[in-house]
Design a protein around this nucleic acid. Structure first.
Lengths: 125, 125
DNA sequence: TCATTATATGATTGTATGGTAATATAACGA
DNA sequence: TCGTTATATTACCATACAATCATATAATGA
C-alpha cells in the first residue's frame, strides 16, 4: 500500500480526502469552534454565544466537522453537546501555528531588512 | 503571548493566517505539486509534464505555494526551479493522512457493520 | 396535545477561487 | 536586435461554499 514517495498521499482518491480535510480546517469559524471545544463539551447555543455567531451558521459548521469525524456529539434533552472527536487536530494546529509564526516573523524581518536581528529570532525558540 | 487555551491560535489575525495556510493545502493540485517536489527540485515545465497539468495553472499554484513560503525557487537560465521550502508540510501531511485513513476505515466498518473486525483494524497499526 | 426551547435544514445571495485561453515578460543564443 | 523557450500574468467563466433568513424537526414539560 505504499509507494516510493510516502509521506504525502499517493492515489487520487486519498489525495482528495486529505485535501478535503485540510479545507475543512481552512475556515476561521471552524477553527474558532474547535478552539472553544478544546475547553470542553459545548451545546450549539453555548458555542453561538461564545463565538458571537448566528445559530444556523454555527450549526452548519458543526455538521461539517462532525461528518469529518473531527467532533463528536450527543444529545442531552433538547440540546446537542459537541466535543472534540479527534485530538490529532491540536497537534496539527500546533504545527501550522508554529510554521505560520515563523513565516510571519520572516516576512516582517524582510520588510524591515533586519537580517542582522536573526539571532534574536533564533532565540525565540 | 500565550493564553490559557494554547494549541489552537488565539487572536483573530493569527487565526486567519492559520486558516489560510490550511486552505492552501486544501487543493489536490497543490498537494500533488508538493508530492512531486518531495522527489527534488523541479522546473515548472517538469511539473506540468509530471502532473499532466497545464502551464498557467501549475504556475499559479506554485505562486500561491511560494507566497506562503511552502516552496522556494531559483532561476536557472530561462527555467525556474521550485523546491520544498518548508519541510514541516510532510509531518503535517503524515498527520492528516493517518487521521484520514483512520476516519475512512471507520466509515467503511460502519457501513459494513463489521464491528467484529475491529481487531483486524487495530493490527494494521 | 400544545407550547416552548434547541437544533437542523431549505433556499438564496455573495464571494472566493480554480481552470483555461490568450498574452505578456524574462532569459538566452544567434 | 530578433527569435525562441520558459514562465508569469491577465481576463474570463464556472463552481464551491460561507453567511443569512425563514422554516422545519426534535425533545421536553404542562
Amino acid at each position: 500500500m505504499k509507494t516510493a514517495t510516502d509521506g504525502l498521499p499517493m492515489n487520487g482518491a486519498m489525495l482528495e480526502l486529505v485535501a478535503r480535510r485540510f479545507r475543512i480546517l481552512g475556515e476561521p469559524c471552524r477553527l474558532r469552534i474547535l478552539q472553544q471545544l478544546e475547553r470542553g463539551e459545548h451545546s450549539v447555543g453555548a458555542l453561538v454565544e461564545a463565538l458571537d455567531g448566528n445559530q444556523p451558521n454555527i450549526s452548519r459548521h458543526l455538521q461539517v466537522l462532525y461528518e469529518a469525524g473531527l467532533v463528536g456529539r450527543r444529545r442531552d434533552g433538547t440540546s446537542v453537546l459537541y466535543a472534540i472527536g479527534d485530538p490529532f487536530i491540536f497537534k496539527l494546529c500546533d504545527l501550522v501555528c508554529r510554521s505560520t509564526r515563523q513565516r510571519t516573523q520572516r516576512s516582517l524581518d524582510e520588510l524591515q531588512g533586519v537580517s542582522s536581528l536573526r539571532s534574536a529570532q533564533r532565540s525565540r525558540r
